[in-house]
């Protein structure tokens, strides 16, 4: 199931960001409830039930959609918050829920069969067998693909499965097996996949030492930045570690994914929707990124290659950009 129109799916960490995203040209907005059921469970972020219903109404009045991310994994014997979140999303009139856990998918399929189900990137379904499994067992309509596939990989997966796909267009590079990364929990004791926060703010500290700033998670120093050196998020995957007497970013450099220059290739690959990451970012970020992608997509729909000034570099992590796995230049 592919479409010639690329749907722009945008983040909203707050009701104000939802309105900003829609006003800036988002086709669809995704957001989550204010608890551990979504993978951006940070203080002050997310929606309560009333705010969700208001957000859905705001979007629907303007012909746009709202997807609710319920994409963490329930703790054994404590499924209720996740079931409640699915019920609340349905009651709020959400257009779809974005799920990752098998049990939550099963619950949603049985209790709300008419509520559209998308597979979260947290399920890490990166091959045809996996995608078909979720489609066949839970009637999943769309899969959000992990950021480990090249454009050619994406095209062949779509061809093989015939599934609607949503791919990341802007945000983190995310080379890890998403939904299965436990680096942060080794340090904090809190699981990102159940608590909804990788490197929870309660365990992060920045310390000044001389002219440098140290970022620490728990009692582990992750990084040290010189006065004018770009900073990175305080997550273990973006730490700078010593190996063979040399310090380097072993897992991932502080660099942002930006696919705005390869939109024609993604469209040609049969992608249905583009996802902008950043529910934890401000509405200023949402306005800037969504506007840039809207302009590029409108140009693409008219058959014009994206020629918008790509000034998103400064807002990307570390002030740098890459195509990530879409173009595996290291091969």
């Amino acid at each position: 199931m592919t479409s010639s129109y690329l749907e722009l799916v945008c983040p909203a960490g707050t009701p104000a960001a939802l309105r900003t995203a829609i006003d800036a040209g988002a086709d669809t907005v995704y957001c989550g409830f204010r608890d551990c059921t979504n993978a951006r469970n940070y203080p002050g972020l997310n929606f309560d039930q009333d705010e969700m219903a208001e957000g859905v109404a705001y979007a629907h009045e303007r012909g746009r959609k709202v997807l609710v991310a319920i994409n963490t994994f329930p703790r054994a014997g404590d499924e209720k918050p996740w079931h409640q979140a699915v019920d609340n999303a349905a009651n709020a009139g959400a257009d779809a829920v974005i799920l990752a856990d098998l049990g939550v998918l099963d619950y949603a399929t049985r209790r709300h069969p008419s509520l559209r189900r998308h597979l979260s990137v947290q399920a890490s379904a990166a091959n045809a067998l996996s995608v078909q499994f979720y489609r066949d067992h839970f009637d999943v309509k769309r899969v959000v693909l992990p950021r480990v596939l090249s454009v050619e990989d994406v095209a062949s997966l779509i061809q093989e499965t015939g599934m609607e796909t949503e791919v990341f267009a802007f945000g983190s590079v995310g080379p890890m097996s998403e939904g299965r990364c436990f680096l942060s929990s080794y340090i904090t004791g809190l699981s990102p996949t159940s608590e909804g926060a990788c490197a929870p703010a309660s365990h992060v500290a920045y310390k000044k030492e001389g002219g440098c700033t140290k970022s620490c998670l728990g009692n582990v120093t992750l990084n040290q930045f010189g006065k004018d050196e770009p900073a990175a998020y305080p997550t273990p995957c973006k730490g700078r570690y010593m190996a063979l007497d040399h310090s380097s970013y072993l897992f991932e450099e502080p660099i942002g994914l930006n696919a705005i220059d390869i939109l024609p290739q993604l469209k040609a690959a049969g992608v249905t929707a583009l996802k902008i990451e950043g529910r934890q970012r401000s509405r200023a970020y949402v306005a800037q990124v969504v506007s840039a992608f809207r302009k590029a997509l409108d140009g693409l729909a008219l058959g014009i290659a994206p020629t918008v000034a790509n000034d998103l570099k400064q807002i990307a992590e570390g002030g740098q950009e890459t195509f990530g796995a879409y173009k595996k230049g290291w091969r």
Binding site: A17, G44, S202, Y206, K227, R281
Partner: peptide, 27 residues
């Protein structure tokens, strides 16, 4: 976050207090 990446702002102390405040103001 952009201001943080570019080091135009500096934060120290209880990060959850700052994140909570920042997100609440941005609402």
């Amino acid at each position: 976050d952009m201001m943080f990446f570019s080091r135009d702002i500096d934060i120290t102390g209880d990060t959850s207090a700052i994140v909570g405040l920042r997100n609440t103001l941005d609402r």
